[in-house]
Design a protein around this nucleic acid. Structure first.
Lengths: 189, 189
DNA sequence: CTCGTACAATTCGGTGCCGAACGACAACGG
DNA sequence: CCGTTGTCGTTCGGCACCGAATTGTACGAG
């Protein structure tokens, strides 16, 4: 992923837009969040996860269930940062690999719990240390202190979106229709 | 996305693994990179991009072509941080929306250039300022200085993976077979 | 000119991903 | 009891995503 120098990008944008003010520091941090996320994800998938035939998301779901124990799918999705619709599919994949099992909720027929199988437990016991070693590898250029302050800054962004995002989106629409999504299921017709 | 407190997570991991050393600062920074990336992406898709019927990736590809001008698809993919196979599909989508056009390379029949249509140019001119405003919104809790240092730290991670990732992956395999991917095209049979 | 090698983009299998619609169940009021 | 209202997980349409195989073009060696 060749990175275009920031200054150069800025000049190019200026050429396109004239002197409209651009928030370049903010632009740079957002761009780099995504660059870093995909670089890290790909590195980890191609090192430790490939051998176990897991995707990043599959691993994250296993991780959540491993740490939390048997958990309602709704909560697993939330912790893993994916939609519940996506979780259904990922859980199906993991179930077919024998790593996860579905357990019916003892008192509520709507709910489903997710738990690891013995094989899943065993896999996480051996895989997590390797995973963590790659986390350490990618973060190696940062001091422990830099790790903490970076994690802090990122957390602030997450909190910002979670606490003010909804409100902001409504404000941007300003009474207008919520703009339908082109893809997605249609009403029965 | 409810975030489990770091300390609690750490204790839970300890309960699972005993006293095996865990790099928790590095773990936290990697986890937060992904939380932030998906939070930002979702916020922007659901605010400015939804109305234009664009995905995040679609927008990034438009952005790259907008800034760079007519560009070989190979380079667009690299700049956008996606595989060339993915780019083919995304470009097809954008082409069907009339935002992008394919141009044959003047001297090399293998290469294909991507350029914006007039409609694409016009869209970017109006859309980019809105996009940038949301970047500013999500980064609002950070000072300009924090933005820069965070972007810096993230850039170091990207550089680390790009310069040492390949070597690291080879070292981890240590002569073993490169581990096939389960999904993906099979040899003709 | 004719290979063979190199490199370009596309094709394609399997999965991830979102969010609206949906069906099943729960909870509560009458 | 029986509707109503809300919540749960699943289904599903359309797109994104990777990477190996494939197809098509370029180009140097012989």
């Amino acid at each position: 992923m060749t990175q275009r120098p920031i200054v150069e990008t800025e000049q190019l944008v200026k050429a396109k837009l004239g002197d409209i003010a651009i928030r370049h520091d903010q632009m740079a941090v957002v761009a780099n969040i995504h660059r870093a996320a995909s670089a890290v994800r790909q590195h980890v998938e191609n090192s430790v996860l490939r051998g176990a035939d897991l995707t990043w998301t599959g691993f994250v779901v296993l991780w959540v269930v491993w740490i939390s124990g048997e958990t309602e799918t709704r909560l697993v999705a939330e912790e893993a940062g994916i939609s519940k619709g996506t979780l259904t599919g990922v859980a199906r994949t993991l179930e077919s690999r024998g790593l996860v099992r579905r357990i019916e909720h003892p008192s509520d027929g709507r709910r489903v719990l997710l738990g690891l199988t013995d094989e899943g437990e065993e896999l996480m016991r051996t895989l997590f240390p390797d995973f963590n070693a790659e986390e350490a590898f990618v973060a190696a250029p940062l001091s422990a202190e830099e790790c903490r302050s970076t994690a802090d800054a990122l957390r602030k962004i997450v909190v910002q979106v979670e606490t003010h995002g909804e409100e902001r989106r409504l404000e941007l629409l300003d009474g207008a229709e919520p703009a339908p999504r082109r893809s997605g299921r249609r009403a029965k017709g």
